[in-house]
């Protein structure tokens, strides 16, 4: 088991280096550079000398290969550098934004699981009934609806409905406070974006649950259990669902890893000061250091989630042995 984990982590190294190389190259292919943007912000008087000094200071004049090796080496030594834009340490910049994004991603996952697994199961058990059709339509609509549009609409609806109901429009808070400081304020802020993101997420999961469940229900051992006269409840809960959950777990894991990046658009709608918005700003400002750090963060989350999913998978399915 530990050997397996170590092996998986070693296998992740090429992925990480590859991702690092990719983002490094992409950032340097973008025309222009941060010095001009930062110094000339707002049409300021910028003399070429100070641009040159800035480039020198940020190491933008070094040969590409040196820059790349510096970048890799700094990550090996766990020094993630300072943002070229604000001069703050990258860890500091990210730490300020991570809690919102992480909380929304987690809450969306919980919402997705709570909705998707029961509904998906019921839908499979009542295959081709009206209930099944409704659930499927809701699920497909969830995949088809752009989450940012859902966000815009839900924000307006919340304001309008509270206005009509109480005469005073209400909207979620717009500045993030950590959960332990003010749970109610925190939740009322995060809930709406979590639902908008969670809807799509639950739709995907619901479809997977349903199809996995259908497949399992056609298996021989279920038929055997039924013919044995076992209670339907036991069949579903103990035999079918447990097996059907395998692909669902994988899907939830993969979707979660993508969620962090997928928040880019949703954070824009709700003015959330999260990772996604930071990423857009970093690319826009051509803050290479920050962009690289963010991409590496997303990639690491992806790799780790995948590993966790695989371990979970093995835990759920004793047939799988690590080799």
């Amino acid at each position: 088991m530990y050997r397996y984990i170590v092996k998986r982590l070693l296998l992740a190294v090429p992925t990480l280096v590859g991702a690092a190389a990719l983002v490094f190259v992409l950032m340097r292919l973008i025309p222009g550079d941060i010095c001009v943007i930062r110094l000339g912000s707002g049409g300021a008087h910028v003399d070429p000398a100070s641009v040159e000094a800035c480039r020198l200071q940020l190491g933008l004049n070094n040969p590409m290969i040196v820059q790349f090796l510096d970048f890799l080496w700094s990550y090996i030594t766990l020094d993630f550098g300072t943002s070229m834009w604000s001069g703050h340490p990258v860890t500091h910049e990210i730490a300020a934004r991570l809690p919102v994004s992480l909380q929304i991603a987690l809450m969306a996952t919980v919402i997705a699981i709570l909705i998707a697994i029961p509904l998906g199961t019921i839908s499979a058990l009542r295959e081709n009934t009206w209930l099944d059709h409704i659930v499927r339509m809701v699920a497909i609509a969830g995949i088809a609806t752009p989450s940012f549009w859902l966000g815009i609409m839900s924000l307006v609806l919340v304001l309008d409905i509270t206005y009509l109901a109480t005469g005073k429009p209400w909207m979620p808070p717009i500045d993030y406070v950590p959960f332990w400081q003010d749970p109610i304020r925190n939740l009322s802020m995060v809930l709406l974006p979590a639902i908008t993101v969670g809807y799509r997420y639950s739709a995907v999961t619901m479809r997977m649950t349903r199809s996995a469940m259908l497949e399992v229900l056609r298996e021989d051992y279920i038929r055997t259990a039924r013919s044995k006269g076992l209670l339907e409840q036991i069949i579903v809960n103990r035999h079918a669902l447990k097996n059907a959950l395998l692909p669902v777990v994988t899907l939830i894991g993969i979707e979660f890893a993508f969620l962090i990046g997928g928040l880019v658009v949703t954070e824009q709608v709700f003015n959330l000061n999260g990772i996604g918005r930071l990423f857009v700003q970093a690319v826009q400002n051509q803050d290479n250091v920050l962009t690289q750090a963010l991409v590496m963060l997303v990639v690491v989350i992806f790799v780790v989630t995948n590993l966790v999913v695989d371990l979970l998978y093995a835990w759920l399915d004793p047939r799988i042995r690590f080799s």
């Binding site: 992925t15 590859g18 950032m27 962090i260 997928g262 690319v283």
Partner: peptide, 18 residues
């Protein structure tokens, strides 16, 4: 593996940036 590790929208964003 490398490409899959990027969420679709993030990779697309980077490509558009370039």
């Amino acid at each position: 593996d490398v490409l899959m590790a990027f969420p679709l929208i993030i990779l697309a964003l980077a490509v558009v940036a370039v």
